Structure formats: C-alpha cells, structure tokens
Computed example of a mutant assay.
Amino acid sequence: MTQQQIAPALVPAFAPTGTLRASINLGNPVLANRDPVGGDPVGVSVDLAHAFGRRLGVPVELVVFEKAAASVDAVRTEKADIGFFAVDPARSEGLRFTTPYVLIEGSYLVPDSSELADNGQVDREGIRISVGSGSAYDLFLTRAIEHAEIVRLHGAAPALAAARSREVEVAAGIRQLLEAEARRAPGVRVLPGRFMVIQQAMGIPDVRGAAAQDVLGSFVEEMKADGFVSDALERHGVDGAVVAPAAQLPS
C-alpha cells in the first residue's frame, strides 16, 4: 500500500502546539500497559501514536490516563490531539472517529458457583452487573440491559473484584482481562462467547475538521493493510484482539 502524503497545511490541525499530544488509556490492557521495567506506556496505541507523529514530522507527547472516560474527555476538550477509543454513540459528541483498527470482545465473568451458563441469562431481575464506569461496555450495556442492575465502579479492577467477592453476580469487561482474572486464582469463570464486539478506533476533536478526519482514517487503513497493527499486537503479546477488516473510505 502506498504511504499517504500529508499536506503541510494540515499538520497544525493535528499538532497545533507543534507536538502531537496522544491520549493513552491504560485502562484497556489490550491496547496499552506500562513497561514492567521502566514504567513507560507501551502497546498498540502507543506504537500508532508514534507512527503518526513520524508521518506528520512532529514529536509525540503521551498524555496518559487510567480510565477510558478521562482519555476521551482529554481529546474532546483539546487537552490532547488524538486518542484511541472504543466507538460508541455516547462518545460521538465533540469527537470524530476513524474506522476501527482493532476488534475486542466484551464478555462476562461470574463466580464459579453461579447458575448462569450463557450470556442470554444475564439480563434478568436480581442480577447485578459490575462495570468500569464510562467504559465501552458500560455505555453498551446502559442501552442494552432491560432488567438487570448495572453497578458502575471506578475501573476494571474493582469491577472484577466485585464478582469475585460476590458483591455482584456478574462482571462485564474485555474478554482477555476476564480470562486473565480467571487464571489468576480459582473462584471465577468466564461465560462462553461474547455480548458485544468493541470497535477500537482513533479519534480527534470535532473542531479539527473533516479533512483531518479523512487523513487520520487513511492512516488507520494503511496501518492495517501493511501489517503494522498485526505486528504490534504480536510484538506486545496481545491475544485478545484481532485486526479490524479493511474499510471502504470515501474517495
């Protein structure tokens, strides 16, 4: 795939300060973590941020957050220039998204003693579902759940702990994270299948305009097509996500 050329006049739309400020969410371990040795942010989203900075010819500053909602707000309020988010209608105001670059499964964690055997049994009276407040699965379940109660907690770790301690009947989250929790210690299990597919995309503040959105979207499609995203997933040992299919961009 031919490498896109970014018009110099568009560079300030992405880096008005002369530096590309990239909002990184450490709350999604599929996309970003801290290096266990040096503590620096590492992951697929970090790699994409640096690659886009190189494409623009500007330095990159990582603006790091522990929760998705804070990472989204940083871009929406232009405290950061780009971000890496799950696409959701509740996040569309004030943002422009690209097509997705990675797909992640959202699943349920339950205590081993639970009678729940599949995802279709979760949405009923008397069931409490813990989620990280403002996460992609919180937003999705807020629209989809009709009978169960959603218990919003400060991040993924407290949500998983609530299921293990029987404070709730179910915890919702990224499948890879739930499987790691189930392997960590006996007492919980992951229900088979998924209740949603999370589409991870790049985003910019809405005020940066449609031309900037198109450029960023073309960059994402190029990174998928030339193997950059798949290589990054492999390099960082991610097995809970797949590269999103190629999208047809406007000509």
Rank of each mutant, 00 (worst) to 15 (best):
D118T: 08
N33E: 15
T19K: 11
L177Q: 07
V37N: 09
H154A: 14
T77D: 05
Q3E: 15
E181P: 01
E146K: 13
V131W: 04
A246N: 08
R235N: 09
M202Q: 01
R164P: 10
V63S: 05
D138H: 04
Q121S: 08
A7C: 08
A159Q: 15
L20K: 03
N33I: 14
Q199A: 13
A15D: 05
P192A: 01
Y108F: 07
A247E: 13
L153R: 12
I82K: 13
V242C: 02
G227R: 01
I24H: 10
A163H: 04
V207Q: 12
V170W: 02
L216V: 03
A51L: 11
F85T: 12
A210H: 11
A32F: 14
S251T: 07
L233Y: 00
D81I: 15
Q3S: 15
F85D: 03
A161Y: 09
R21E: 13
A212I: 15
Q121H: 07
L141Q: 03
T17D: 10
A157G: 06
D35F: 13
I129T: 02
S130R: 08
A247S: 12
F140P: 00
Q3H: 15
L191C: 03
L116S: 14
A86Y: 09
Q200P: 11
E179L: 11
P192E: 03
A246I: 07
L177C: 04
F84H: 04
P12Q: 11
P41A: 08
T98M: 01
G53E: 05
S135Y: 08
V151H: 04
V207D: 13
L10C: 01
V242K: 01
A182S: 07
V242N: 02
V87E: 03
S114G: 06
S92D: 15
T17V: 12
L48P: 01
